[in-house]
Amino acid sequence: MKTRPIVGRAKAGNRSSLASDEITSPGDAVDQDSVADQDSAVVTIDVAELSAEHADLLARFTGEVGADAVIESGVAGRELVVRIEPAAWVSAALACKTKLGFDYLGFVAGIDWLPTPAAGGDDAEGDTSAPVQPKDMTFGVAGSAGRFQVFARVGSTKVARYGITLKADLKESAPHIDSWFSVYPGADWHERECWEMYGFIFDGHPSLRHLYLPHEFEGFPLRKDFPLLAREVKPWPGLVNVEAMPGVDDEEGGD
């Protein structure tokens, strides 16, 4: 019998840092902070400001990938977001995995920054259940050059609360980017999903075929201009037009 159960340390903060030799400062620093700001659990994040640990991580990332590959950076929640040149997409992943200690693949996904069209056209009256999004095209943290972006998150199983989100712009006419499959094998399915949902083509992927949808499916569902036909045809069946929805008159809403 070779059961060798290992019991980790109790309590957050007292993390047994498995890889503290290779990756020193950020993990421990993050840990102490997490204990320290326990009481002020949720704080409003100032997007513009990079905290010390984010700045340190960004500096090390820039050092590995090269300063000309990094376009812009920002913070989403507690996560560092870096927008990089599409040409450096794979080399950045390789640096993350081998040099920076991000051994864990979170996800690979896409974004379409086109404004959400109102269901049934702009002057739709039937469907009032869907939220109204702004009509102008704005971009999120770390910006974007155009409509399509691919973004991916990698993390670490060895250091607590240590992750980074990478973004890269794609051309709208020909959304091509290199595949992460050779670096993170788990990117296989994520990239297939992304291709199916957005039509992004991952060069070097072994078999880019349908993952979720039937083979005869047409269109890319997560693109903003893909309509939900059920919403076009009929209004939300749950809407009973007895009285106005609360707060329709006063936009601000009451506290």
Binding site: Y212, L213, P221, F226, L228, L229, A230, R231, W236, P237
Partner: peptide
């Protein structure tokens, strides 16, 4: 999922 693109209603 009444408005989903992949669910049979």
């Amino acid at each position: 999922y009444w408005d989903s693109y992949s669910v049979t209603k």
